[in-house]
Design a binder for these strands. Structure first.
Lengths: 185, 185
DNA sequence: AAGTCCATGTAACCAGTTACATGATTGC
DNA sequence: GCAATCATGTAACTGGTTACATGGACTT
């Protein structure tokens, strides 16, 4: 069973919006948590509506455009989302192309290995910069009230923090591996 | 373009083996880096053989069983793998069910949020234990020579280290979030 | 007697991605 | 004039997962 439905419900729980908006939002954010495609959003919205988890709120019409259908979660949808959030989560090891490369690092010359790790480390640093800037922006907006559990901002900050922490750990890991390779190279 | 081919090439570069072995190996290890399915392995092996990146080495036959086809990488396959390993790697944010839940944590009661985080933290601790045990076992086997870049063991240890480091970072993150929630709870 | 392991392979199914179609408006 | 933006939706394609088929030996 796919998780797009929860990505959709979660975004709609924060603010009623259209399928088009959902796709853009899900991809634009600095931390693209769960990107949604145009190909899946419209069938999914139809399914969720049929199950009574969301409902069409309004249909703005700008006459020269197809009507914009704005959806919102129903109380049933909210409850389904809450149940899923509270349910135990199995751990799964994420697929990671970089790690697949590292697993084969013994096949290339130390110089090339070093190049790969250094390059990726730089990518990670850039990414971390973006994350930290965004996090600072968000935390400012919250004015210290972001410790409130019931505030969506609180959840957003938690997610950003995890992204930053994971990225910092990975940068440090690169540093270690570089040291190991350089000792030999 | 799919990455299974590199998972397959990488495992065959370590040791010639059959499709059946590849599937088991790719899933059995403590760190299931890139699981392969029966549904994809045989077509993929056929494709790689057709491209000349691998070749069938031998076919053991135990008469009451289908013949076991053992494959090995060719020099062309080895080079293709090396090129891919050295090529720049784009960063992608991994999809993570747990983070999707965290993003919706503001919807549930602090008690339930705490339960979710604590539960997942325990899962992570167990996982970390497995990783560390496996890592200790592997590092012993290497007898200190595992700093050699050209040794596959070196690459394996790097991957395990990253897994452990990421998991520790995530456990620490859970601790922080628990503190934030408990301060309110 | 029933189930698991070896070992290949195919077929059906499901999910994600990309491309197309519409059509007026705005920006270069 | 050409591309991009808004906004819906469908169709085609690609890739991953699950289920099935074969069949003897071994375990419970």
């Amino acid at each position: 069973m796919s998780l797009v439905r929860y990505a959709v419900l979660g975004l709609l729980a924060r603010a009623p919006q259209s399928g088009y908006d959902l796709v853009r939002r899900s991809k634009e954010r600095v931390s693209p948590l769960w990107p949604i495609n145009y190909g899946q959003i419209y069938p999914e919205l139809a399914r969720l509506a049929a199950e009574g988890l969301i409902e069409q709120q309004a249909a703005e019409r700008q006459d020269y455009r197809p009507e914009k259908k704005v959806y919102a979660v129903t109380s049933a949808g909210r409850e389904a989302l809450q149940r899923w959030v509270a349910a135990p989560t199995p751990m799964q090891v994420p697929h990671d192309e970089f790690m697949l490369k590292v697993h084969n690092l013994w096949l290339v010359e130390p110089q090339e290995a070093l190049g790969q790790i250094r390059g990726y480390q730089q990518t990670l640093r850039d990414w971390l910069g973006d994350l930290e800037r965004f996090q600072a922006m968000i935390e400012q907006r919250g004015d210290g009230s972001h410790t409130r559990n019931s505030d969506p901002l609180f959840a957003t900050i938690c997610v950003l923090r995890w992204g930053a922490q994971r990225t910092r750990a990975q940068i440090a890991w690169c540093e270690d591996v570089i040291a190991m390779l350089a000792a030999e190279g």
